[in-house]
Design a protein around this nucleic acid. Sequence first.
DNA 1: ACCTCAGGTTGACATCGTTAACCTGACGGC
DNA 2: GCCGTCAGGTTAACGATGTCAACCTGAGGT
Lengths: 237, 237
Amino acid sequence: MTTRRVRARRGEGLLLREEILRAAEDLLAESGTEDALTLRAVALRAGVSTPSVYLHFADKEALVEAVCMRVWHELGRLFSENLEGDPLLALGRCARAYARFALDHPVQYRVLMMRPSTGPDVPPAAAECFRHMVNAVSACVETRVFEGDPEELALGLWSAVHGCVSLLIAQPSFPWPRDREALIDHIVRIAGFGTALYSRLPQALPPSAELAAGLDDFGVRLSRGAGPRGDANQPSP
Amino acid sequence: MTTRRVRARRGEGLLLREEILRAAEDLLAESGTEDALTLRAVALRAGVSTPSVYLHFADKEALVEAVCMRVWHELGRLFSENLEGDPLLALGRCARAYARFALDHPVQYRVLMMRPSTGPDVPPAAAECFRHMVNAVSACVETRVFEGDPEELALGLWSAVHGCVSLLIAQPSFPWPRDREALIDHIVRIAGFGTALYSRLPQALPPSAELAAGLDDFGVRLSRGAGPRGDANQPSP
DNA sequence: ACCTCAGGTTGACATCGTTAACCTGACGGC
DNA sequence: GCCGTCAGGTTAACGATGTCAACCTGAGGT
């Protein structure tokens, strides 16, 4: 760990890049704070001198960005694993998987999503994540459960889940309910149903009395139509 | 600005605290990045030597926290200005005001909400903000448009708006629609209606086909009941 | 055997937060 | 009016950080 690394053979310089990246990831995960992600600490952990990091990363920001790419790929994998079956249920599974990942890797998620804006263009791995989401939303538009521009709808859904997990991560002192899993569940449902209704609604929020009038009957009708109650994480039977 | 400050008279030491805070706020606002918030820069701007900051703030974190308190107060003022009238419309106005503030002061919002967790307890100014929200939500529960625990519902709404604005701020490279104001509008409506429906819905997301069946009629009924279409920022006539 | 250059290292710099030690001049007491 | 005190600062320095210029070194081709 602190032991001096043996010098790579010719043409194997990329090995060091891999080791540095791993060291950075481990440091983040183990320390639990991005402050521990120091070039000196990373280099020490990789068994190499500090400026050697510059052989493979232009600067610290480039290293952090490389770590982020890994996280984006992980998220992309998570999405692509959950896309089968009913589009709306698939979307729900993706959202829950995303939230779980964020809560299980708070430091990584913070670095990924709460860092000062990196550059003017979205990295390919992130674009692929987003494409997955847009595809899933498009499927929902095709089954007529959503209506509107899939990109815009996907951004809205992403916002909802991101809002919840990022607030959980960054403001743990808020009066959160005990059961985080249940909270995520609520958010996913609110976002899902809100989005389903979104394009069919009056352009302004109606006054309370007029909104309240129509709600109960809708709930009853929807419940009658819905399948057996249970954990929506499970794929639909 | 860079001119040496005249020493405060006895008992007026708190003047410097005020000037340091102002310098910090201005630095944040003008530079557009939290990296510019340096103790040296703050001290220079306040016309004072660097270690003098420590006369009034335990460390840099304390200074940043003091800046955050100001922002919380501003948000609290914004909320309390928008609470009159129909509860649901009031909530919508608060959400829009919150979002506008965040987008107009991205650096401050980032420092306030995306900084590594400060302490185990929520600051009083933030608690008051949250209390305002809970009260507004409670009013919606009393008019039967929402149903459930007001604290939990308020957190959900907060999450939704925070998710959108924080993503806009931190990930400007995402394929956002041009009209930010319209996007916020969508999010507020999705969150509002989703929350209104939340407690009346089946516990799991139903498959698409069964959800799509009930949606259109609900939209039609709700539209018929709602007031004239227009900007929901306006108080209901 | 030697030359080359990929793959590093050493040493230094500016800047950051933070601390210890020192200064100074406005005020109350005499 | 003079003086000691102490609130309200200052100077000088420390260690840590990102970064860079210069140097080294040894495996592999000739």
